[in-house]
């Protein structure tokens, strides 16, 4: 950049700053077909502005590498994507899941245990699995709620609790979100290792898919985990991975020193979090309310034998065969 064009730019910026705020908005400050300043000479203003808009780094004399880019146009794209499609589609996704779950509950009701409880308890999840699950669950709640405040809070909360109130809440959410992030990363790794066994896809899953999981009537056979649960496992693991990596990039901007990577990480973080939360709502519904007797497996570690027969008949048979073998061996 020549001194001449720099001075020109400086004058422009100072001049613009002197104007009343709103006139700065895009498209209003400049008249179509006119560019400010001189259009003759050995520098083309068109070229100059193109260079600015393309975000080419120029020569600077301070160590901050980022300052070499005058306008990073992707910032506008990022803002548009975040506040546009991500927020909109994500929001509808959340609302959609809630409506879907409510509809399903209204039609199907709570899925009861066939023939009621048998009184016989079968060990389902180990203490380690239960602990891992609930730790991730508490992180899910803490990070999910603080994250939603950061993404959507601006649309309603300022009207409810005032701008200052929302600023306070947003600051609190940001701090909590940053603090709990690393704990989520650690716990999702533990969760992978404690739950991966039994979650590989197998041939039995085809039957389950064919019967639509028995969600709309009929009985779908499955082993320890059914196809839906396996999906949830792999989905939360991959989303967890994206959330973890992007979260680290966002938490430690100095790691990459790349604004574009930050923007990408942010978009990936928000999008995967929204999918995670949406599907998570379905998981919570089925685990806690929708299926009688399911939550006990994760609280006490045991489930009723009739529940096992209903939902995981192939696993139930394996357990019974093991028991019989043990009894026979003694």
């Amino acid at each position: 950049m020549s001194i001449r064009s720099f001075l020109l730019l400086l004058a422009l910026v100072l001049g613009a700053a002197a104007l009343p705020g709103p006139t700065l908005a895009a498209g209003e400050g400049a008249t179509a077909g006119q560019v400010p300043g001189e259009s003759l000479g050995n520098t083309s203003d068109a070229d100059f502005w193109r260079a600015v808009r393309e975000g080419q780094p120029q020569t600077i004399s301070i160590p901050d590498r980022e300052a070499a880019v005058l306008i990073q146009s992707e910032g506008e794209n990022w803002r548009n994507i975040r506040n546009g499609p991500i927020s909109t589609i994500g929001g509808w996704l959340l609302v959609g899941v809630i409506i879907l779950v409510s509809l399903y509950f209204a039609i199907r009701g709570r899925i009861r245990i066939t023939g009621g409880r048998s009184g016989k308890r079968i060990q389902r999840f180990t203490q380690m699995q239960r602990v891992g699950h609930w730790f991730v669950a508490s992180m899910f709640i803490l990070l999910g709620s603080s994250g939603l405040v950061l993404l959507y809070g601006r649309y309603g909360l300022p009207y409810l609790i005032g701008k200052d109130g929302f600023a306070t809440l947003a600051s609190a959410s940001l701090q909590a979100h940053n603090l709990f992030g690393p704990l989520f990363i650690a716990s999702i790794v533990v969760l992978f290792f404690t739950f991966v066994k039994g979650n590989w896809l197998s041939r039995d899953d085809i039957g389950w898919i064919a019967k639509l999981g028995g969600f709309f009537g009929g009985h779908a056979s499955s082993r320890f985990y059914n196809f839906g649960e396996k999906n949830w496992f792999w989905m939360s693991m991959s989303l967890g991975l994206i959330l973890s990596v992007s979260g680290i990039i966002l938490d430690f901007p100095a790691l990459l020193e790349d604004r574009y990577a930050q923007q990408l990480a942010h978009i990936g973080h928000a999008a995967s979090a929204l999918v995670f939360i949406s599907v998570g709502l379905g998981h919570i519904y089925l685990g806690v309310f929708g299926v009688e007797g399911a939550v006990e497996g994760m609280t006490t570690g045991t489930v009723d034998a009739n529940w096992a027969k209903d939902h995981h008949d192939l696993w139930y048979e394996e357990v019974m065969a093991d028991e019989a073998a043990k009894a026979g061996g003694e």
Binding site: G165, A167, T168, S171, A172, L174, Q175, A176, L179
Partner: peptide, 12 residues
Amino acid sequence: GCFALGEASDGL
């Protein structure tokens, strides 16, 4: 305490 880490607000 964690919410107030930003030291941004009297309220927190």
